[in-house]
């Protein structure tokens, strides 16, 4: 198949084949990161610009490592040094960046829909690295890759997503993709953070236990502490009393349950240390998969939706790697 999308704006608009193709491509890239020389020339001569208008360390670094392992030139612009403070519009900033002919623009922005705006007006490929409360597609893809590695499938899996669903782009991206892939999703959190509009996609409940019961995957969301100001819950203490995942909860889940978290962790608020560091936690695998997923996304968009047969097979990958070694020498 051919990956025909020019941009990665969200997972809601992708079909099953496209998502699985992204995951397959990511899986094939995983081994590069395990090699001694973690670099292939797949995107040599290509430029990736990351524009982050919101604080982020891990996502930006993950994209940077991914780009560099593919030999792309990587430039990053963060909110503090951007022109936004000088009154320039987002579109003008983006057009200025685009005039320097990048191949891929990675955008993180506090307003939902900004990647869509730029995709409409720029020539280069746009990757959504998180837009407001809308989507965070590469995060969900790495979550999906982690799930598939452990479970081998999506159909019939029960996935509980717990926390601030209302404001979570991670929850939305996972929800849309998991539904497309045939998993059953349950959403849990205080009613103030659990919009009733989720109902067409998922079972919703304010009770953590009900969501975890029989679950194959428990996915926790990071609680933004400032939500307390909006009266979404009375105190962090009360929140943690009802929504902090403890070892005891896992007894309700499937015996081979896996616990996920996009990070950074609020230990003792949404996840207990015993769970975070325990045998069911796959949190660090998620981080490792993040690089592979972003390599796949940058590769596919940076090469302009290359045909699947052109994606390096294992043998080709080795050949690419050899040439990479030569280049390094």
């Amino acid at each position: 198949m051919r990956f025909s999308q020019r941009h990665l704006l969200g997972l809601e608009e992708l079909d099953r084949e496209e998502i699985l193709f992204l995951l397959d491509t990511a899986a094939s890239f995983r081994e590069i990161s395990e090699r001694e020389i973690k670099k292939v020339p797949a995107l040599r001569g290509k430029t990736v610009v990351a524009a982050f208008f919101e604080p982020s360390t891990r996502t930006r670094i993950s994209f940077e490592i991914a780009a560099k392992r593919l030999s792309a030139d990587f430039v990053s612009l963060s909110g503090t040094v951007s022109s936004a403070a000088k009154g320039e519009t987002l579109l003008d900033t983006a057009r200025n960046l685009a005039a320097m002919q990048p191949d891929v623009l990675v955008l993180r922005h506090p307003s939902a829909g900004t990647p869509h705006l730029l995709a409409k007006h720029l020539q280069c490929a746009v990757v959504n690295a998180g837009d407001g409360c809308h989507e965070h597609p590469t995060q969900a893809l790495l979550d999906l890759l982690t799930i598939r590695e452990r479970k081998g499938r999506f159909e019939g899996l029960v996935v509980a997503i717990v926390g601030d669903i209302l404001h979570s782009r991670v929850a939305r991206s996972n929800l849309f993709a998991l539904r497309t892939l045939g998993a059953e999703v349950r959403l849990a959190g205080p009613r103030t953070l659990l919009p009733s509009e989720c109902a067409p996609w998922a079972f919703t409940t304010p009770h953590l236990e009900e969501a975890v019961q029989g679950a194959d995957v428990v996915m926790l969301l990071r609680l933004q502490r400032e939500r307390q100001v909006g009266n979404f819950f009375p105190s962090l203490e009360e929140y943690s009393r009802y929504y902090c995942l403890e070892e005891g909860h896992l007894k309700l889940a499937k015996p081979d349950v896996m616990v996920m978290h996009p990070g950074p962790l609020n230990r003792g608020i949404e996840i207990s240390s015993a769970v975070a560091d325990g045998p069911y936690s796959v949190i660090l695998d998620q981080v490792a998969n993040g690089v592979a997923v972003r390599m796949a996304v940058l590769y596919l968009l940076g090469t302009g939706g290359r045909r699947v047969e052109a994606v390096p097979t294992k043998t080709q990958m080795t050949a690419i790697q050899r040439s990479g070694r030569r280049a390094t020498r």
Binding site: E12, A112, G113, D131, G132, C133, H134, E135, R169, R172, P195, E197, C198, P200
Partner: peptide, 12 residues
């Protein structure tokens, strides 16, 4: 409007 589409689009 607060409803199905605001949820899908992640807009308040």
């Amino acid at each position: 409007n607060e409803g199905e589409w605001s949820f899908r689009l992640g807009l308040p």
